[in-house]
């Protein structure tokens, strides 16, 4: 059993979701190789080599992989991956974009977004917005799997001493090119990695009112998220959306403010350890999953909460 884990990174830093994915790999077997594909990403490979449990790091440093274009990276992953029994990637937007493409090149039906490893060929994954958990067995020779990072505790970033091997492959399909990106700048922790998440919904009424949540977040070292309703209403940008089609979070503490609790939203946060709901509608479905419910006007409760902390 040899497992290829695709590293998530920005050419400078190894992203935390990689550590959760390696944890899932460890539940399958112990010959774990990590592929770092990018451009000028030597430091990422060095970081990956130090991760606990990694046997080898494969570094593909080429301008064709700089922006993680799926057309190029999938070809590389398929070429390298055919010598492995498993190929794993984090179920981030980068992983979701690239991995199925690599799987199809290998004629494999991938398994998306696993939350548990039952055996080397059998995995659990949520379907129907998390209303059902399916146990799925693959009969393909190579198992291609994306991993929901919140379902696996990260392995230690230090403790390993794997060798880094460079491969000189430049798969440039030349059908796509990177134009640009607008990334949200924030000093707060990343939503999917934060210990505390505070999310606002339609009840926030407008984008300016999210300032209250940012203040509270800064006091708690929290990340700020939103329901789809708040994003669709234009209060906040889409990368803040928590839910079935947005980000999946599972922090120690999740505070839902002015969120009614549609099943699509619950799918993104119901694995949080402790859930607090603040909503003036005591019938709101969010209260059915909340450990602590406060029926109150959020415009009174949130500032009061901030001063009492």
């Amino acid at each position: 059993m040899s497992i290829l884990v695709i590293a998530e990174h920005d050419n400078a830093e190894l992203k935390g979701a990689t550590l959760n994915t390696i944890a899932a790999a460890k539940a399958i077997g112990d010959d774990i190789h990590v592929l770092v594909a990018g451009a000028g990403c030597g430091a990422v490979a060095e970081a990956a080599a130090k991760v606990d449990g990694v046997a080898k790091v494969i570094l593909a440093d080429n301008v064709a992989y700089e922006h993680q274009l799926a057309e190029n990276v999938a070809k590389l992953v398929a070429d390298l991956g055919k010598n492995f029994s498993h190929i794993l990637a984090p179920a981030t937007t980068t992983g979701k974009n690239m991995l199925p493409r690599a799987a199809a090149l290998l004629d494999v039906q991938p398994i998306s977004d696993i939350v548990a490893v039952e055996s080397a060929d059998t995995f659990k994954r949520p379907i129907y917005a998390g209303n059902v958990i399916a146990t799925v067995q693959s009969s393909d020779a190579i198992k291609v799997v994306s991993v929901r990072s919140t379902a696996f505790d990260a392995v230690a970033a230090e403790g390993g001493s794997a060798a880094v091997e460079s491969v000189d492959i430049a798969d440039d399909a030349a059908v796509s090119s990177f134009v640009g990106e607008e990334l949200a700048e924030s000093d707060r922790p990343e939503l999917t990695a934060a210990k505390v998440v505070i999310s606002g919904g339609r009840g926030m009424q407008n984008g300016d009112n999210f300032e209250m949540l940012y203040k509270l977040a800064d006091k708690l070292g929290a990340a700020v998220g939103a329901s789809r309703a708040a994003v669709d209403a234009g209060f906040v940008p889409n990368d803040m959306q928590v839910g079935q089609t947005g980000k999946i979070v599972a922090p120690d503490l999740y505070i839902a403010v002015g969120i009614s609790g549609a099943i699509q939203h619950l799918a993104g946060m119901k694995d949080s350890k402790v859930i607090v709901a603040i909503n003036k509608d005591e019938e709101a479905p969010i209260f059915s999953v909340a450990d602590y419910g406060l029926v109150a006007d959020l415009f009174d409760a949130v500032p009061e909460l901030e001063t009492k902390l």
Binding site: H67, L69, T93, V175, S176, V179, E181, D239
Partner: peptide
């Protein structure tokens, strides 16, 4: 223009 984890990314495709 694509919705990605950190924000938005634009790619050009043939």
């Amino acid at each position: 223009t694509r919705e990605i984890d950190g924000g938005l990314q634009t790619v050009e495709l043939k």
